[in-house]
Design a protein around this nucleic acid. Structure first.
Lengths: 231, 231
DNA sequence: GTCTATAATTAGATAGAC
DNA sequence: GTCTATCTAATTATAGAC
């Protein structure tokens, strides 16, 4: 999705691809933690276990590294969503209510497992820039349009008592779904540093999705799965 | 709330206080836009119309400038909340439902008028650090506890069909209330750069609060004020 | 494909003139 | 209280050896 890599005269060699992948994973962490400008290519290279010169060979400029990282992040995010969809016996069809419910569950699961994506988004979206325009045009707008259409279908079939224009609902749902994971270090401090096993984490994610669905579809849609706090 | 300023041997002189205020306003913008590490003290001084040496006289280190900025930000935020509360004929008392409703309206109004606070929070909360611990201990925890108690009262009196532990609800409500304003540059791109007059902005903020209240208190609490889209 | 060495900028902090 | 000049360290990007 973005011009990448070495000079591309011949197909890349396996060890180059591997360091490339390592660099992308390292860049993902750094960019998500502190944003584009504060992230240092040296720190990224070190985290990936290579030298700085190696990074600039794979990604000639910091900007190209960032774009490749964002592409990689959205790919992983889509994979998380797909995995979450398969986990359920996805009754997706032309029923907007079922689509919404399954979609919200998959969304919450994905943002919880990959908070780095929303962190990068938030670091970039606080100020207008070329990078923000690129990420909106390349990745965000299509997802926003998709969600808008679903929201309008939901309103048309009378499934919700909430009346709001799509852009408002987009940010309400995304914010409610993601802030706890974006601000996970803060949340951990507020909760007093409980250990949070993987199972407890999963239960919390399910409860989180239940809350969002109950907020939008109302009490009549409660499926008895709304837990407060469990192990 | 934080040790500040020059050597404090004598009371500060008026022109010093003025540049101090200018520096805090400038720092607020820079820290909110790009975060602590990417913000440059030179850029802050330039924006405030003074030289860099002047900044280090008022705030010896970047860290002290940041803390003073955050204190200032929370003061301004509380002022916005207070102004929003006075705007309504605040029926706050011991009725949790009324308190919640008025509080949500004031919250949405305040985050919309001062998105810089939530931007700073999000820049800091994506990674554990001394700054994060300081901001949580100094400003966040007391507000979190206050909101948790209100949420438990709301559940106890059966006013909501949502069942969730306080920390989950804290991030759901705060995320739903703030993301649109935190990511305002992105939202403007998604909406196609509509002009958004002050009146339209106000209407949108009211509609936003209506949505949050309807989400939590359910259809029975709709007050006929839920607008979709208006001028 | 990987590495070292280095150029060119820029950062925060300090010292001292006025 | 304000400003200029400067120090030290860290940044991205480049050139070239292997």
């Amino acid at each position: 999705m973005v011009a990448d890599g070495p000079q591309l005269i011949r197909r890349p060699q396996p060890r180059g691809l591997e360091t490339r992948r390592d660099l992308l994973e390292a860049a993902l962490c750094e960019f998500a933690s502190v944003g584009f400008e504060a992230a240092s290519t040296r720190a990224i290279a070190t985290r990936a276990g290579v030298r700085q010169g190696q990074l600039t060979y794979q990604f000639p400029t910091k900007d190209l590294l960032w774009r490749a990282t964002v592409d990689h992040l959205f790919e992983r995010f889509d994979a998380e969503v797909a995995a979450a969809l398969e986990l359920r016996n996805t009754p997706i069809g032309d029923d907007p209510v079922a689509t919404f419910e399954v979609g919200i569950r998959a969304l919450v699961r994905a943002v919880a497992k990959l908070p780095e994506l929303n962190r990068v988004m938030v670091h970039e979206a606080t100020e207008d820039s070329q990078r923000l325009r690129w990420i909106v045009d390349t990745h965000v707008r299509q997802r926003f349009d998709q969600m808008s259409e679903l929201w309008q279908q939901l309103g048309a079939c009378g499934a919700t008592h909430i009346e709001a224009e799509p852009v408002l609902m987009y940010y309400c749902l995304l914010g409610a779904a993601s802030l706890m994971y974006v601000n996970a270090p803060e949340a951990r401090l507020l909760m007093g540093g409980r250990p949070t096993s993987a199972a407890a984490m999963d239960a919390r994610v399910d409860a989180h999705a239940d809350v969002l669905i109950a907020m939008v579809l109302g009490p009549k849609h409660l499926r008895g799965a709304v837990r407060g706090e469990s192990s």
